[in-house]
Nucleic acid binder design. Structure first.
Length: 209
DNA sequence: TCAAGGATAAAG
DNA sequence: TTTATCCTTGAA
């Protein structure tokens, strides 16, 4: 696979003030990991935005603790945390220092290293499900909470765009998954995914969006 | 439908 | 120190 037309997103991409826009623009970009000597690449097909100031669904909402501290760091780092004691969820920190925002990366379409993803996920997992869902995605890509806080300018985990792609992906918008605890903020249309992609984790939940 | 599982944050 | 809860998954 030739990646010469792929360019790593600069810190400035992540440090912009509107996490909603960043989440939307991350759909169609490419997540790379080079972990345990294995390069894996997937096209991002599903994301969610979390806003630390207004959004009850965000871990950093009205709190600055050991866990959420990384979200207060400058954009362009990884926020990886353990969910339900089992799943490592990968987020991208956005916005500037002291302003806590993040984008959850929820699903990928495998591009390179599908065999490695299959090995990490287990033999029974279907192709379409290799990285469909945030926990599955991290397992497929080798992402672990040990990589919390690392820079996305590193050679371990990064995101790139394909400069030679001549079509933009069509993007659908929906409510976020698994945030019922957030009251009315659970109704915000802050999930973005590639229209008609079979690699998305959850189908449309609110048809009016 | 439901159990798995460990870290987190707030309460005691 | 205890306890409820969690940005989920896959097998029943």
């Amino acid at each position: 696979m030739d990646f010469t037309s792929y360019e790593k997103l600069p810190e400035a991409f992540y440090q912009r003030p509107d996490v909603i826009q960043v989440a939307e623009e991350l759909v169609g970009k490419y997540l790379f990991t080079n972990i345990d000597g294995i390069m894996t690449v997937g096209k991002i097909v599903e994301t969610e935005a979390y806003n630390g100031r207004t959004d009850r669904a965000c871990h950093a909402y009205q709190r600055r603790t050991t866990r959420t501290e990384v979200m207060y760091q400058p954009g362009g780092r990884a926020y990886v945390y353990l969910c339900y004691g089992i799943h490592h969820l990968f987020n991208v920190v956005t916005n500037v220092e002291d302003v806590a925002d993040a984008v959850l990366i929820r699903a990928l379409e495998p591009v390179t290293g599908a065999e490695a993803m299959q090995l990490r996920r287990g033999p029974k997992v279907k192709q379409l499900k290799l990285a469909a869902g945030p926990g599955a995605l991290s397992q497929a890509m080798g992402i672990h909470t040990r990589y919390n806080e690392i820079s996305l300018q590193s050679e371990l985990i990064w995101i790139a765009e394909n400069k030679s792609a001549n079509h933009t992906v069509e993007i659908e918008r929906d409510v976020r998954v698994g945030v019922d605890y957030a009251g009315e903020d659970a109704l915000l249309p802050w999930r973005f995914y590639e229209k008609d992609s079979k690699f998305v984790s959850v189908k449309k939940q609110n048809p009016r969006l």
